[in-house]
Each structure stands twice: as structure tokens, then as C-alpha cells.
Amino acid sequence: MVWKLSPVSVWRHRIPRYRLIGKECKKCGKHHYPPKLACPYCGSRDLKNIELPRSGIIETYTVIYEVGEEFRHKAPVVIGLVKLDDGTRVIAPITDVAEDELEIGLRVEATFRRIRDGDHFGVIGYGLSFRPIRTNVSKTSS
């Protein structure tokens, strides 16, 4: 058995990954993700957890054909840099999307997905992807 995913690390990161918990700097007020122990903008270590907005726009994206080992069955992998509604940026897969729908500025919302299948024996890695906001089935626009 090959351990492709650590059950411990999957567990340790579950809250920021499942609920989009980032940090707010108490000094400069900026939000960031993934959560750090010091503000990447002003260096302050005085931070607090914050639940980030679950919708935003695609600021830039790529369709990856030359994927890593564990993503061969998912190729091509669409990765977006999403600017959330509060300005925080997140790197995440873009799902339920056709390549010709992708564009900079596309509005997207978070959806809980199976990110890493690991191997047949190991743990499954869940997390958030983003999908285009289709008005009638959107959670964030209703």
C-alpha cells in the first residue's frame, strides 16, 4: 500500500479547506488565504480566523494537460485563481465547466468536492472547488 495522502494532514487542514477559513489581520485589516501565522501584507502576527465569502470572480485560469500522477484520471485539470467578493484570492479547481465557458471575470461559487482520490486503500481528500454561478441553482445568488 502506498500512502498518497496523509490521514493526519487531511484532518489537520479540514476546517480551512471545508469552510474556507482564512485570516484577517487585526492591524491592516486585510484578509488572506491560505491562513498564515503572520500577515503577508504588513507582517503583523496579530491575526484572527475569518470565514471568507464563498463567491467571487475568476481573475485568471489555466487548463492543465500535463498533470501530476494523481490527477491523470481527471485531466485536463482546470485551475482558477478566484478573487472572492472580499478581495481575498484562492487557488482552486474550477468544476462543472466546459473549456469554452471559461473566461476572466466569470462569476463562480464554492462547492464541496472530492479533490483527491488518493489510492484505493487510503483516505479521500475533500475540499472546495468553484463552479460557474448559474443563476437558478446558485446558493449565493438566491
Binding site: H73, R113, K139, S142
Partner: peptide
């Protein structure tokens, strides 16, 4: 269900709607 969907992810989506 898409490649990244399973019963758990589907359940989460439905449950979020129920909570709303």
C-alpha cells in the same frame, strides 16, 4: 455525478440548501 462528486459531496450540497 462528475468526476469529483460522490454521495458525500452530493449530500453536502443538498444539506446546505436545507439549512438555507
Amino acid at each position: 455525478g462528475g468526476l469529483d462528486e460522490d454521495a458525500v459531496t452530493i449530500g453536502v450540497e443538498a444539506a446546505m440548501n436545507a439549512l438555507q
